[in-house]
Structures are given as C-alpha cells and as structure tokens.
Amino acid sequence: MKGVLLVNLGSPESPTPKDVKPYLDEFLMDKYVIDVPYLLRALLVRGIILQTRPKKSAAAYAKIWWDEGSPLVVISKRMHEKVKQQVAVPVALAMRYGNPSMLAGLQELHDKGVTDVMLFPLYPQHAMASTTTILVLAEELRKKHFPEMKFTIVPAFYNKPDYIKNLADSIKKSLENFEYDHLLFSYHGIPERHIRKTDVTKSHCKIDGSCCNTPSPAHEFCYRHQCYETTKQVVKLLKIPEGKYSQTFQSRLAGDKWLTPYTDVEINKMPEKGIKNLAVVTPAFVSDCLETLEEIAMEANHQFKEHGGENFLAIPCLNDSDEWCATVSNWINEWAK
C-alpha cells in the first residue's frame, strides 16, 4: 500500500529559552547542518552557541508566534489537511526537528498498512542541511523500525513547471497593489563548502560567475544553481525586465564563507541606489517561518527604512494556498496511480 510523508523543518514547542534550547541543540548538532567533526561541533554548539542563542532566538520566535503555535507548524498542518482531502492515499506530516517527529509520521503510515512511502521534503531546492538530512534520518528510521518499507524520494522541484507557476502567480498577486522599484529573491544561505561537498563531479562547482550556467550533472544537487534557476524561470514567466530584480542569500554564521551576495548587506544599499519601494520573495521556503516572518518581514523591513527606503513588501510563501495544495496533491496522485 502506498502513502506519503510530508517533511518540513520544524520548530520549538514554544517561544521560550527552555523550549528553544533543545530544538537548537537537535538542529545545530546535526552533522549535515554544521558539518565538522563531532567533538568540535559539540564544543561549538553546546560550549558556545547554546550559552547565548536560545534567549535571542526565543525573543525572535516570540515576535512571530501565533495563538495556535509556531507559524511553520500551523501552516504545514493546514496544508497537510488540504492535501489529504485531494488524494486517495494516506498522508502523514512530520518535522525534521521537533514535533511531529519523522518517527511518529512513519509509524502513522505503518499503522495504516503503508509499505511504499513517497518521502516528500518540502524544500524546492536541494541542500545538505535540509534535504539530505531528511533522507538520511528517514533511512536510519526505516532500517531500525520499518524494514519492510521502501521509499520513493521526491527530488528538488525548483524547476517543475507547476511549482514555478504557483510561485509566479503568488508573486504577481502580491504585487497587484504594490508599485515596486525592485523585486528581490532572497534565498536561505548555506556555507560555500556545502556546494562543493554535494558536487557529484567533484570538480564542476567553482562558485564563480559561470558554473551555475554551464550544464553539468552537479546541478541535480547544487543548491546555488537551483536557486538561480528558480529565479530565472519565475522572472521569465512574469516578464520582469533586467535590472528590476536581483538575488541574494540570507542567514549566515560568522567564521565561514557563505553564499553571497548577502541579503541584509544588499537591502541596506538599495535606497541610495534609488530603490525606495522594495518587494522581497523567499523561494527557498514553501511555508512562512522565522526566516521569512522575522528576518525579512520585520528586520529587513526595518533596516531598509532606516537606510532611506520608503515602502517594503514581504511576499508570503506558498503556505497552504489552494493552488499549491492542488499541485502537491496532483504530484501525489500521479505517483499513486
């Protein structure tokens, strides 16, 4: 019997340091997130980061928290409910970190008699710190608890026409009542070494001006290429002229070279270039979360205006829109035939 496991990132149980700390520990101790030897990772995470970060992160979560709970989890649950109504196979929801756990999600499917699981990471672009860690944990859980199960992996859907159309339509709708000077595509950042580590050719990814545009088998797992391709296809569909859009990467840790240009740096420079009305879309996420609601809609908005900007629009993620839920359901139904 077939079934589906939708997997998103996850969230703390509450916006308090007490609950944020174990969530951050699980997240940052993941070897696919901070990919250094265990002892060094433990020293860095538990000896340094977790001494101060939980309080700061809790304050950030508190700013975006909804009455029903974490926006990312609430939105994921709403999407899950809509998808369940449109497909003929069981669908479970899980988070890579926190609850509902991936073990609970697989157990739910197992209890319904599912042996063939469509494993669906809810990330448009492939990255070690998002997609790979889900696939690795799922395989560990399968071997340990559900040896009779087999997985069908949903690959990165960054360039699938249905997804591109959903994204373009949502941007177009958001811009109907906003006269923008510039549209910024802001993607989550990752360390440059993650790009090189996922290069199956071991030689293609130079992270220069050309490798992402030169065809290569490396692109199947190259986050940077896939981000640029998403932007390119959306821009083409919306007919946005050259010079009226750009792409950046947000979020980074000190001490490492992360993908550039950086979102905050570029946004702060825009007003002096004559960009007074800025719209920002975050296509690395399908659900609004801390990185979109606090980092972009609040912090980037504030910084933009501090530097002379006038109007700022944070375009919502696809979330549980009917169009996006229909697309996901169609992909599931195609597979389940």
Rank of each mutant, 00 (worst) to 15 (best):
Q303N: 15
R96M: 06
E334D: 14
E140R: 14
L122Y: 03
Q247M: 13
I171V: 14
C289L: 09
I195G: 07
N319P: 07
N99E: 14
P217M: 00
E334A: 12
D67R: 11
L175T: 05
K112Q: 15
E140K: 15
D199M: 01
A129D: 00
F120H: 05
E299G: 07
V36P: 09
M95A: 10
Y38W: 14
L135M: 12
I315M: 04
T327C: 11
N213R: 14
A88R: 15
W258C: 12
K55S: 12
L122Q: 02
H182E: 11
D322T: 13
F185I: 09
H307M: 12
M149V: 09
H225W: 12
W258H: 12
Y163C: 04
E299L: 12
P17G: 02
K55T: 13
F304S: 02
K55L: 02
K160N: 13
I275L: 08
L28E: 09
F185T: 00
K31W: 10
L50P: 13
A42Y: 14
S11R: 01
P100T: 06
I34M: 10
R252A: 10
H307E: 14
L106S: 02
F151Y: 15
P12F: 01
A59D: 14
N319I: 01
K244T: 11
M79G: 01
K150C: 10
E108L: 08
K206E: 14
S70E: 02
A254I: 10
M270C: 06
L93M: 13
E176T: 14
F178Y: 12
H145T: 02
S251M: 07
I171F: 13
K150Y: 06
V36Q: 12
Q51Y: 07
F304T: 08
K160V: 07
T282H: 09
F178D: 11
G3Q: 09
T133Q: 08
P71V: 05
E179K: 15
V33N: 02
E179W: 06
L278I: 06
E139A: 03
K2W: 10
P90A: 09
E299T: 10
S246W: 06
H145G: 00
A326I: 02
D35S: 13
A138V: 05
I48R: 05
S287R: 03
S210F: 12
D181N: 10
H307T: 11
T132V: 08
F285A: 03
I153N: 08
R224H: 15
N301T: 03
K82V: 05
E306V: 09
K197V: 04
A92C: 08
A279Y: 01
C212L: 11
H307K: 15
P90Y: 08
L290R: 00
K31L: 07
D111S: 14
K172D: 15
K143F: 06
F304I: 00
L137N: 04
A88E: 13
K143T: 12
E220H: 11
S11A: 14
A58C: 11
P124D: 08
S174K: 07
Y262K: 03
Q125T: 03
S321C: 04
I49Y: 04
G3S: 10
L39P: 09
E291M: 03
P17K: 02
